[in-house]
Design a protein around this nucleic acid. Structure first.
Ligand SMILES: [Mn+2]
Ligand SMILES: [Mn+2]
Ligand SMILES: [Mn+2]
Ligand SMILES: [Mn+2]
Lengths: 219, 219
DNA sequence: AATCATTTTTAGTCTCATCTAAAAATATTT
DNA sequence: AAATATTTTTAGATGAGACTAAAAATGATT
């Protein structure tokens, strides 16, 4: 059995190390999971013991094949629940994360698959993140960071990386939502900020914000 | 904060002691929760410490007002999730209990209330158990144990007490479901069994089974 | 290459929720 | 009312998961 805590560590390693294929440092995990390095070392040993992670002292962790699958299935649940909360229970995209963080640990294969069906087999969650299938696979949607877009070009907001409620509330406040068409007007070399235009207005977004916005451009 | 384990104890006390108003013994709780008496004593002290239970050594436990409310809200969640699983996710009534046992501990007031709305504010779960409202109140549906019914009379199966999957599978096997009309034909004094008649057939049910069936009789 | 800084691991402690075994209190029989 | 049986509590131990402080390893800088 994989415990709740173990699942959270698997997810962190998966996210930090390109699906767990690249070695992740103890400190990086500690920060992500808001714990201490010593706690992480303990847990990593346990994961290695259970053949979910590959661990060499002082050289970070990667996930084994089964660790990677386990992580992907937790992420699958997390994202399906997020869709459920938004589509069926009137949650906004900035309200779903904490509840999904709990729901992702519910154990019932039937529940996950039926939920998937109820929602019409969605491919992406409310933040544009792809939903892995039963085998842990997904095809990331073709989107590009808004900072890579040449001024003058436009695209549809397809994904936001930061799912924290502070960031999403900022987007709400500025009327930016998934699916909105955004045109890049100007890049400012001094502070790396960006002037963009939406259906409703023109605005300047900081580099910190821009880093989190991904748009898809139809060819 | 009330932990998952505390919630399970609150529920047990609530169920065993007429909503926690009547003193429940340490052993009774231990059996219900499948733990040991010594563990129960420990937990009861903790609940008393948190003002969720009234505890006098050697004299059992009752729930305080806030303990009763906390218990009722967990039960509310449990039963709403059961309805959700059956109504929306194609679970059968014998499959829901274990999953609901996990889901009942998810913390999010909005989630519960939206779920309630999605389901159309149901008053009973798939086993005929009443669903408490936000204040922990409910009106138990007027039903009578089938053993109290005079032979010759009939009623509609409205509630089953045992929600274990073995019992529910027994009912499935014999084509007995909530809402079915059941006529009591004969009571056997020797083993206290009962002969009943449904739309499809006549059958004998043991006293152990009969104890768990409640029917409502319209006047 | 030697020193200093950072990261990671180890050692030891804590809380929560459990358990077993023994002691104490209560309940039931004779 | 004693003796016996049962229930409940206490005492002490364990494992999971977290922490702090100190030691060890690695990495960076002179
Ligand atoms: Mn989580
Ligand atoms: Mn998301
Ligand atoms: Mn439970
Ligand atoms: Mn039920």
């Amino acid at each position: 059995m994989v415990t709740r805590s173990e699942e959270n560590y698997l997810k962190a390693i998966y996210h930090l190390g390109k699906q767990g294929t690249v070695a992740v440092s103890t400190n990086a995990i500690a920060e992500k999971i808001e714990s201490k390095a010593s706690s992480v070392t303990d847990m990593i040993k346990k994961l290695a013991e259970k053949n979910l992670a590959n661990y060499i002292k002082y050289q970070g962790v990667t996930l084994t094949e089964s660790g990677r699958l386990a992580a992907a299935l937790v992420i699958r649940k997390h994202r399906l629940w997020e869709v459920f909360l938004v589509e069926k229970l009137n949650f906004t995209w900035d309200e779903v994360h904490d509840v999904a963080e709990q729901l992702e640990h519910i154990k019932s294969p039937k529940l996950v698959n039926e939920l998937d069906a109820l929602l019409g087999f969605p491919t992406h969650d409310p933040h544009g993140d792809p939903i892995p299938d039963k085998d842990g696979h997904y095809t990331p949607l073709k989107s590009v960071n808004i900072l890579e877009v040449e001024p003058g070009n436009e695209g549809v907001l397809a994904r936001v990386i930061d799912s924290s409620d502070v960031f999403l509330k900022y987007l709400n406040k500025n009327n930016l939502a998934l699916g909105d068409t955004i045109k890049v007007l100007d890049f400012e070399p001094f502070d790396h900020s960006l002037t963009i235009e939406t259906a409703t207005k023109k605005m300047i977004i900081s580099n910190a914000v821009a880093k989190n916005l991904f748009i898809s451009q139809e060819l």
